[in-house]
């Protein structure tokens, strides 16, 4: 009977809840938006590019970041909105590099379309900068092998999955998501770790990410084997 590998150090599931902090900063024109994007804290860039992931578990009607939504809906600059919406967030290893890409995209667009500088939002439709305050804490769940890991993943809160997949990588500066990190370093399952790290989590809902990762674990070679003793 094959036995699944057990790690010496378990994967300890944490979770993360967030609070939105208002900055009092607002933009009415593309240039004001640009200047404030350069100035605000990384926590604010993080908020405006990530909060939709947790707010729309069902269907996302919005472009996946607030900057894209606002320049389209409030300024009527759909082409810029599309460029911002299609920034491939997963390619960026830090908030700083993501911020630089957003800044470059807006600057290039304003250079190419000077008339866009004259756009302004109607009163009441300004862009309000918010920042995300994260509270991270452990859950009682820990897994020593992939069978336990998948079972916990089935029932753990969506905020925990969010933390390990998104926040740990981009905000806490880890090389990859926490799941891939542990699966490779503690279990030696390099191929599975890579497959999980190659998922584009920004185009899925968290529930569908949960289902995909569980499926990857169970469908890997030997994945149906239960751990005995």
């Amino acid at each position: 009977m094959a036995v699944v590998k057990r790690a010496k150090q378990p994967f300890r599931f944490h979770t993360r809840l967030h609070l939105s902090e208002l900055t009092g900063l607002r933009a009415s024109t593309p240039e004001e938006l640009l200047e404030l994007i350069k100035k605000v804290s990384g926590s604010s860039i993080y908020h405006h590019t990530h909060h939709f992931l947790q707010q729309h578990q069902y269907l996302s009607p919005e472009p996946p970041n607030d900057f894209a939504y606002w320049v389209s809906a409030a300024l009527g600059e759909d082409a810029l909105g599309e460029k911002l919406a299609s920034i491939d967030t997963i390619q960026f290893a830090s908030i700083r590099s993501l911020r630089n890409k957003i800044v470059e995209t807006i600057e290039a667009y304003l250079e190419e379309h000077p008339s866009a500088r004259r756009r302004f939002a109607a009163p009441g439709e300004e862009f309000h900068f918010i920042k995300s305050v994260s509270f991270v804490f452990p859950t009682p769940d820990a897994a020593y092998d992939l069978t336990e890991f998948a079972r916990i993943l089935e029932r753990i809160g969506i905020d925990s999955i969010y933390f390990h997949l998104f926040e740990a990588r981009l905000r806490l500066g880890r090389a990859t998501n926490d799941f891939s990190l542990w699966i490779e370093s503690s279990l030696g399952e390099k191929e599975l770790a890579e497959r999980i790290s190659k998922l584009d989590p920004y185009t899925c809902t968290l529930e569908s990410l949960r289902a995909k990762i569980i499926q990857m674990i169970r469908n890997r070679p030997g994945g149906q084997v239960e751990c005995r003793g």
Binding site: L17, H18, L19, V133, S134, F135, V136, R171, L172
Partner: peptide, 20 residues
């Protein structure tokens, strides 16, 4: 309820990332 608890906790912990 969760947001209220987080605001209470934010009064005793500074910073944008708080480890509880």
């Amino acid at each position: 309820l969760r947001d209220y608890l987080l605001v209470f906790l934010s009064l005793f912990h500074r910073g944008d990332i708080v480890y509880l």
